[in-house]
Amino acid sequence: MDWILDFYNYRVAVQYVPEFTRGMLATIWISLVSLVLSLTIGTVAAIMRMSANPVLWRISAGYVQAIRSTPLLIQIYVIYFSLPALPLLGRRLDELEGGIIALGLNAGAYMSEIIRAGIESISRGQIEGAQSVGMTYLQRMRYVVLPQAFANVLPPLLGQTAVLIKDSSLVSFIGVFELFGAGLTVLSERLMPNEAFLTVAVGYLAIYGVMLFFSNYAQRRLGGVRG
């Protein structure tokens, strides 16, 4: 059994359970806050993108293009190092704030594309059907467009959330402690990369598994509604 301990010394991994747990909770927390932020930004950007006003339209399109064409790591650096240079806050952003804002802005661009596609997927005909029975704009949105858009959009939104969770590992670059950071701690203290990063991988896989379960569940539930 020695070769197992050689490859992966679980006794060491067990020693670091508190670190891994703290890291896991931090990852979940960071992802959750960034998710809420990105959904808010994404919804606003999607509505702006569909507006008839060319200024709003262009701002939203430019934002999405800029995010999609540059790496998240650079976005994190720019926001964490450069935003404090602007006399906005009067103080430095701390690492956590900078990281979450960057993650939220990044995911928000992808979310906005998903949300827009969802709303546009509702056929013109159904909207006219709703108009023809006299439903107001808000009633059409509330009873016809949004329920269906939500069903169409939930699976890709969950997929993007899984990406967001993985991407949150990059905030360790600016010194935020989370699941990957826990791995870095083990590496630097014990010089045991397998015990560090295989354990971290299992942690991410556990979160991913839960996401996958919800995604399948949602697909089955919502798929059923549309027959």
Partner: peptide, 10 residues
């Protein structure tokens, strides 16, 4: 299911 960063280190 795992970040690229983890693959890279492993």
């Amino acid at each position: 299911g795992t970040p690229f960063l983890v693959h890279l280190y492993v």
